[in-house]
Write a protein that binds this DNA or RNA. Sequence first.
DNA 1: GTCTATACATCGATAGAC
DNA 2: GTCTATCGATGTATAGAC
Lengths: 201, 201
Amino acid sequence: MSTPGRVRGNYAKTPERRREILEASIEVFSTSGFRSGSLRDIAERVGMSQAGLLHHFANKGELLAAVLRLRDDRAEEFVPIRGADGLATITGFVNLVEHNATVPGLVELHCVLSAEATDPSHPAHAYFVDRYHWVVRDLTRAFEDMRDKGQLAPDVDPASAARAITAFSDGIQVQWLLDRTSVDMAEEMRRFLRPLVTVEI
Amino acid sequence: MSTPGRVRGNYAKTPERRREILEASIEVFSTSGFRSGSLRDIAERVGMSQAGLLHHFANKGELLAAVLRLRDDRAEEFVPIRGADGLATITGFVNLVEHNATVPGLVELHCVLSAEATDPSHPAHAYFVDRYHWVVRDLTRAFEDMRDKGQLAPDVDPASAARAITAFSDGIQVQWLLDRTSVDMAEEMRRFLRPLVTVEI
DNA sequence: GTCTATACATCGATAGAC
DNA sequence: GTCTATCGATGTATAGAC
């Protein structure tokens, strides 16, 4: 009954199992990083052997790629990055930060992997270089739209504001991870944005 | 002639050798992190065996502690954190960021280790929790001093400004590490600070 | 002070039975 | 689809010669 004779494309595998593995991978990679996190640890969390896990993902690098893809899907479904309204993008960004406080695992994953991946030989290096490029680009466009609508404070450069909000967001996450009781990420983020805009945020 | 009979305190060892090892450790830990960085790799860089290295530092954790201590010494010798003048502290902080652009190894070390150490079981976890506490505290005092002297823009909360400049600094370093050609850390930092203060920065 | 040798753990990946 | 068994590489740390 397993792997039925029906020749259907290539691998239907079991999507649920893959999903479980990805969730466990997030847990492990977020606390131990990619290089130190082990396949055995991940496999144990879903109750299978390490060899069994490698039936679903050919190797460790492929698993990492799938984790990053899953992470992006979730973030994008939360932030309306596309769409003409710049203000909506920025408030969506703040909402994402607020939401992130409820999923510490994903925050850890981002912080740990992005730092690890600054090494050019890291398998996710290109991914993160690329990701920051389009994040800053999209946010720049959002601030440009706000500027054109008079929603930006004078002397605020859209590109610098985009870099700044991205940097602030990353940094405040590290502080929050190190001491979750005394840091309110979303509140600090709004306080940071307020001097830059002329509208309620 | 080695380890002479003179009983003098405990270990004079060879400070120069220790220094070499610490430099190599910074290189390795900054690119591979603490958990993935290996003693063998460090030892090779100073031209000795891994066992030889462990003559100078009892174990890997002790080596990490020494690296962090060295890092702090260098930063503190650069920023006048102590001293009544808040503005001097803040400009010193900007100068440190400017200086950091010339020592990418130390920037990497900070980014990688601070992210890795968000895990409570990491050997440097307590160190980083502690460090952020007093960094934010000292910067808060600096901004308070500026406020009292009318150097702070109205509606700027010193504590939030302290968190913000710290977060911004950490985040911009990650972006810089991922793409050093298109990010000017010090310039972005000044642009970030300008709306917060009433003086030239 | 530095080395070789080694003990012992753990890693990713593969082979092959069921 | 999942397992056991195993290979070869690599990790930290220790023992003991020089």
